[in-house]
Amino acid sequence: MSTYYLNYLEELESEAIFILREVWAQFQNPVILFSGGKDSILVTHLAKKAFHPAKIPFALMHVDTGHNFPEAIQFRDDIVEKLGVNLIVGSVQKSIDDGRVAEEKGKNATRNALQITTLLDTIEEHKIDCAIGGGRRDEEKARAKERFFSHRDEFGQWDPKNQRPELWNLLNGKYFEGEHFRAFPISNWTEMDVWNYLTKENIEIPSLYLAHEREVVKRNGSWIPNSEYLVLEPNEEIVKKKIRFRTLGDITITGGIESDADTMEKIVEEVSTMRETERGNRSDDKRSETAMEDRKKDGYF
């Protein structure tokens, strides 16, 4: 280290570690929102670095739609055991059973919006004052306006037009009883940065991200994986394709792409030539132009 500057990945890493430590210092009961997706895996990995040699001082919290990729759940349980952290699960199925929310009806029904109630209920039940997420500003236009420390009122709502200004490295995490924060340590990372870093650091991710022969069905221009929740339409048929997933969400709505990228290096290569955003295959974002902003205002991730 004879040159005294960081490359961009090191600088992003240092920034994320700074934010994670700031969360720990400013909040009483923070958790990491963990979905089993690459972004939450990255955040967890960064937290490990931030507090080494101490253990990660946050519990992992998973909002379980009940429509999971089984592999993502296995991955979640393994990482919880390996790190020795607590796991909090908020169950959308339980919210439905308790009558807190009603299942959507129709062909394109999803549990996506239902997660909001479960998420906010779980935050309230466990008295969580900061939920750390893997949201990135390059993902979606409403997310481009997010702060590192993002305030939520007592109804869990985001007020994008009245956000606290965030200057230099001075983060204001003050709140009133009943309110909470979301923190986004990897705000400034792009999808490409995430893949470059995961590869460089040799971080394990669910093999769903790697291309593999899978059973899928073509729906709305995306390849939807076969699962126990899939209800076939009359003119749909299940086919086998070499598929990988760019994001891991609700299994009923997360589409995969045809790909030959079966190693991390090949994914980096593929992502660098990709011409569509990773959320382009998420039908939850396609509902309207402001679908993400609307959900975020209500308390979504």
């Binding site: 961009y8 500003r137 236009k141 481009a144 306006k145 994008p160 037009k161 400034n188 940065d193 902003e293």
Partner: peptide, 29 residues
């Protein structure tokens, strides 16, 4: 560059918006 509903409707930037691009030489925010 305009992300929020109000910004699109009014055609103005209200809040700070962060954009990212990369060239073979640098990453830019």
């Amino acid at each position: 560059t305009d992300g929020l509903k109000d910004e699109r409707e009014q055609g103005i930037t209200i809040d700070v918006a962060y954009r990212y691009f990369t060239t073979p030489k640098r990453k830019f925010i």
